[in-house]
Design a protein around this nucleic acid. Sequence first.
DNA 1: CGTCTATTTGAATGTACTCAAAAGCGGTGG
DNA 2: CCACCGCTTTTGAGTACATTCAAATAGACG
Lengths: 200, 200
Amino acid sequence: MNEQMLKQQLIHYLAERIMLSEEDKQAIAAAYSIQTLKRKEFLFEQGKICQTEAFILSGTFRVFYCDQKGLEHVLYFAFKDWWVGDMASFNSTEPSGLNAQALEESVILTIDPIKKEELFSRVPALERLFRLIIQKHLAVLQKRFLLTISATAAERYLELIRRAPGIEQLVPQHQIASYLGILPESFSRMKKQMHQQKKS
Amino acid sequence: MNEQMLKQQLIHYLAERIMLSEEDKQAIAAAYSIQTLKRKEFLFEQGKICQTEAFILSGTFRVFYCDQKGLEHVLYFAFKDWWVGDMASFNSTEPSGLNAQALEESVILTIDPIKKEELFSRVPALERLFRLIIQKHLAVLQKRFLLTISATAAERYLELIRRAPGIEQLVPQHQIASYLGILPESFSRMKKQMHQQKKS
DNA sequence: CGTCTATTTGAATGTACTCAAAAGCGGTGG
DNA sequence: CCACCGCTTTTGAGTACATTCAAATAGACG
């Protein structure tokens, strides 16, 4: 697929949400770069200052945090037409606190903070849209946090497969366990127990 | 204190972050309303559509979620010069998923979504500032989430009193426990154990 | 087919929980 | 000023659940 066709997917996503002139579309297409990542490749890594924000044209990512003990904690999974980035440290000079890894061959559009600011000056409506996108991210994270502290792992699991059906075919179990905040062993036992309860 | 003097505190907060003309300042001062809340009064309540965002001139708030079992979970505490609101549902038509309660007599400046949008049209620089403020909130929440799933309650407790010294004099223990995601009984035992370890 | 990784299962451990009761503390009214 | 009440905090004992460590099984991939 050629470059312009791929970028059309982002333009289409944006045009569904805000009004864009032809010049706006040109500027947007020019600001983003196409990048392809193979399975297991990283888009950004914890501790490095490589700051990038990406729009997923195709593929899947896992965004995770690696704690002092070396344990990985999945913050979220990201799919087609989603944004991936460390929204918290993008725009700041600090190194990222997160890792983003492709779970399969993925094609993305990337932008750096400077180009993004330039784009905002040129297309003010984007500023507003990104405020709403960040707000949406905040809403999702807040819900996830509240669910994590108030619901059981089983309830969180049901919520995950409700919101992202088919995820089990896409990501290995131990990563789902990590997303749920439990160990693979606990996750295995939990599923077994849930199946038994369904039968009774 | 008179109205204009109180509103100066917000203008000052904003002017430190973005350039504002005299007209901008006028418009901002006009858009916000002063409100006083007594101890234990609510700014907004879960399930109600009363959507409001507030800037704290003086006082303290706890923002919490009440789950199906009736347990309260403190999402965050908010102090002078902070924003309080359900950023996730502000601007949406859904009822709030959170409660905000004054922990002491508090004076705030409030605005509703419609006035806020009007203000953004009039003062575009505010749009940008609020994008950054939301981004900051997202960063804080993300850090809190990652800490919750990767650190012990004791570590989270130390982090809290590091970031908000004097909080123990201000809020009752069971609310701190709620913030940490443990029960008051567990919090009490935890503190006892921490003191013993310090001595040895 | 063999190796490597992912998943399942088992047993013992630990940590926070539940329920229950006692102790501490603050405020109110006599 | 003291006695009482309500609420918060502490302590205790038993329980539940996820964890750890270890081993076995199953699957994926070359």
